[in-house]
Amino acid sequence: MNILKTDNLTKYYGTEPLLVKALDGISLEIERGGFTAIVGTSGSGKSTLLHMLGGLDIPTSGSICVDGQELSGLGKNELAIFRRRKIGFIFQNYNLMPNLTVYDNIVLPVELDGRSVDKEYLETIAGTLGLEDKLNRKPNKLSGGQQQRAAIARALVAKPAIILADEPTGNLDSHTSQEVIGLLKATGERFHQTIVMITHNDEIAQSADRTIRIEDGRIVESRW
């Protein structure tokens, strides 16, 4: 069953003759529970695609269907709720709130939704990610790798069906990168989440179930 589906997705910026085609007719289907890597050179449109899949950006044309829901059919508020409940985003630059502790950062998406935090689950995640003793610190007191893991914990804690990760290892050394990817895979498998991850590191892409290569806004290769 496909959890993500795009049909002839395009995103253009500007007008002729300065038209920039960030995405130029992307049609793809991603299966539930899979671990997909999107690779491509910088400027190829990978991040735009990920933002589209997460409803953070609006396409010029074409449709995006996430978990049976057509994104264009949602209003602004509905889209925000949809993102909060269905999607976990891991940003390349972490996007942690500097004035909140790590714990408050992690539970933010759940508390925004007015739900109570599943304490047991949070402890499991923090344990797996090695963050238990760092929950009361501010993000700026953590190393890059630890901040990245806090961002991963935040994406996981609401138990979203889909995790979209934009170069989750972009600022990490190769060894820590492997660790983070291993963790993502393990938690994804454990909680049956669909993971879509952008990377420009072929080595990391190799550990995915499926790789999609994008060049100039088009899919040039898709293999399992």
Binding site: R32, N77, E78, I81, R85, R115, A161
Partner: peptide, 20 residues
């Protein structure tokens, strides 16, 4: 789906559980 109501919240949680 995607409403700020209690029913919507619970229904979406239930659908998630059913999916899993």
């Amino acid at each position: 789906q995607n409403k700020e109501t209690l029913t919507s919240k619970i229904v979406m949680e239930l659908e998630k559980v059913e999916n899993i």
